[in-house]
Design a binder for these strands. Structure first.
Length: 439
DNA sequence: AGGCCTTTGAAGTCT
DNA sequence: AGACTTCAAAGGCCT
């Protein structure tokens, strides 16, 4: 699948993005969070297309950009960073951070800041007293090493930095000049002290951060698992343009991250989290088998009701506010993804929907979803309501559970939306084991 | 207290 | 090359 290049006026690239004006803030992305839930990206990043240069579209949206290289940390081309990331020493203090990861959200910064020595490279993000104290209580100055020759030596505190969980000690031995001979124990200690540089957020994560508060506000649901399911559907319901904004933000985030931590690798964080139980990491073959089994024996089962987090008839469960672009764009990601015949599936996002989650429980749930979907489809098609796969199921449905016809016939968005709205049964009803009610 | 759940995407490892 | 795994955020739930 190829998403077209964003149709953005070329003049947009030269707009001054350093001082977000109210005009900038009036964009198509529904930023309706209450002030205290202001997304860290929101204040500084405007989602107007004006800010997305046609020269730097999201990797998967641009056939001109090699998706393989797009995610690889590399020295960003000046034209890619500017004016967002003028990280040269002289200019770094001029530009507000476009991603706004220093802006507090819900009382806390999206990422953490080191104490002292912070030079406020982005004036708009200069820490206030409360932030500063919060930050200084969490970090020690040695945490952030200068990562890039083009960066301030004081170390730009990328939000991704997380303090290592280490007991407080008077003076870090690693800072001692006399530390020439390091014992293995010391080395180990130092490793433990190394700051945990988190992965940059991907597009969906950025979207989640922004929209979570809104969804939570609309729903009585509080569990993130449920919210995330809703957000996942909303994500698929976004127009390509709206998704493109987040892909672009994510791309910039990765660029900045790679500049700040050129030696960082995602591998560095492997093992930082507790490994999940091995038995949950089944092969896809196994998962497909499970799905099929679950499909075949819908009646029996599932450790967990698949709709536990998705109560039907929830207002927040509805697709994101209908956008004209959605209705005008039949070839949405979801729709296109549903078609294996879609050309040029070069992006992971394009292939993923055809892969299964690795979680057995999830697969069981998906199987139930699938069975429910198939059941609903039989009903809907007989009534002529549904000729296509609703977007809400474009991802949750395991490939193996879908009839070939569905996979080869991407739905138009209007049809999908109608199906979605007309078939709440797809969400949960056949398995209405809702544990929470919205109201 | 800490892992699980749940989502998508990026990037790593493995086969 | 493709499949698989891990982590990123979030907060209630569960052990």
């Amino acid at each position: 699948m190829k998403w077209p290049l964003l149709d953005v006026p070329s003049s947009a690239t030269v707009k001054d993005t350093r001082s977000p004006s109210p005009a900038h803030l009036s964009n198509k992305v529904p930023v309706v969070q209450p002030p205290h839930h202001m997304h860290p990206l929101t204040p500084l990043i405007t989602y107007s297309n004006d800010h997305f240069s046609p020269g730097s579209p999201p990797t998967h949206l641009s056939p001109e950009i090699d998706p393989k290289t797009a995610g690889i940390p590399r020295p960003p081309h000046p034209s890619e960073l500017s004016p967002y990331y003028p990280l040269s020493p002289g200019a770094v203090g001029q530009i507000p951070h476009p991603l706004g990861w220093l802006v507090p959200q819900q009382g806390q910064p999206m990422y953490s800041l080191p104490p002292g020595g912070f030079r406020h490279p982005y004036p708009a993000l200069a820490m206030n007293a409360s932030m500063s104290s919060l930050v200084s209580s969490r970090f020690s100055p040695h945490m952030v090493a200068p990562a890039h020759p083009g960066l301030p030596t004081s170390g730009i505190p990328h939000p991704a930095i997380v303090p290592p969980i280490v007991k407080q000690e008077p003076a870090p031995p690693s800072l001692s000049p006399a530390m020439s001979a390091k014992s293995p124990v010391t080395v180990k200690k130092e490793e433990e002290k190394k700051p945990h540089v988190k992965k940059p957020l991907n597009a969906f994560m950025l979207y989640m951060k922004e929209m979570r508060a809104k969804v939570v506000a609309e729903c009585t649901l509080k569990e993130s698992a449920a919210i995330n399911q809703i957000l996942g559907r909303k994500w698929h319901n976004l127009s390509r343009e709206e998704q493109a904004k987040y892909y672009e933000l994510a791309r910039k985030e990765r660029q900045l991250h790679s500049q700040l931590y050129p030696t960082w690798s995602a591998r560095d964080n492997y093992g930082k989290k507790k490994k999940r139980k091995r038995e949950k990491q089944l092969s896809q073959t196994q998962s497909q088998q499970q799905v099929q089994e679950a499909e075949g024996a819908l009646a029996s089962k599932s450790k967990k009701p698949c709709v536990q987090y998705l109560p039907p008839e929830k207002s927040c469960d509805s697709p994101a506010s209908s956008h004209g672009s959605m209705l005008d764009s039949p070839a949405t990601p979801s729709a296109a993804l549903a078609s294996p015949a879609a050309p040029a599936a070069t992006h992971s996002e394009q292939a993923q929907p055809l892969s299964l989650t690795t979680k057995p429980e999830s697969r069981a749930q998906l199987a139930l979803h699938s069975a429910a979907f198939l059941s609903a489809k039989a009903t809907a098609t007989s009534s002529g309501q549904m000729g296509s796969q609703p977007p809400l199921l474009s991802r949750p449905l395991p490939l193996g559970s879908l009839p070939t016809a569905l996979l080869t016939s991407p739905p138009s968005f209007p049809a999908a939306l109608h199906a979605h709205q007309a078939l709440p049964v797809l969400q949960a009803q056949p398995l209405s084991l809702v544990t929470k009610s919205a109201h």
